[in-house]
Design a binder for these strands. Sequence first.
DNA 1: GATCTATGTAGAT
DNA 2: TCTACCTAGATCG
Length: 271
Amino acid sequence: MPEGHTLHRLARSHQKMFGKAPVEVSSPQGRFEASAKLLDGLPLARAEAHGKHLFHRYGRDLVVHVHLGLYGTFTEGPVPAEPPRGQVRMRLVGATHFADLRGPTACELLTDHEVAAVRARLGADPLRRDADPEQSWARLSRSRTPLALQLMDQRIFAGVGNVYRAELLFRHGLDPMLPGTALGRERWDEMWVDLVALMRDGVRKGRIDTVRKEHTPRATGRAPRVDRHGGEVYVYRRTGQPCLVCGTSVQLTELAGRNLFWCPSCQPAAA
DNA sequence: GATCTATGTAGAT
DNA sequence: TCTACCTAGATCG
């Protein structure tokens, strides 16, 4: 379930369950076996996330890099670990809990240098203290590429996915196709602050809620879509349903092979 | 049980 | 722009 908040949540959970104690690392499926053997029994020094990337550091030049991609999942449970079910790429077993990784796009052992290279390609992560939104703004405001595409560009914003993109544009009343060059600095500052708050809320709750109090069902009589993330959202996957603010039918457009959800009335094209 | 769909990315064409 | 990856929940019948 992978937007940035999920990865930060996993990092936090792994740090808590496995941090600073020896971990049994294995690859029941076999595809990570050689690396798992190098790590097995070492203490996990630190788990952290940058955007949608997760890093488990065991020591110098011993960093597991995980990217869940579209399908990847981590499941966890108390020890003793059950027999592996399905294709478990990596299993971690600690003193109290175990975690299974299935279906990731990436699960690989990297050197510090390689980790630095991965991270150098990533833009500002709203969930990291070291995020530099000035860099994102410099890039965003220089490009005529539509905001909807730029928000999903991990080189500019690390961790923003299809849900946060759609919801952020809606919350700020922006046409998804508006060129980056047409966005004002003040509006941008508001968006960044809002994005940080939304994603932090996502980490805390483990779900993406974006609907303001005044637009909840009690206030409007219009039921928000509770997505299978468990979150209440304005437009994401609400195609054809009435906009929670104005009642207009939510639209679906395909953009660069991804579904883009928006309200044509709340997010009008600039005249 | 079968089928569809998706919060993503890399690599081929 | 297309395809592969190859999980799991929702939906269909």
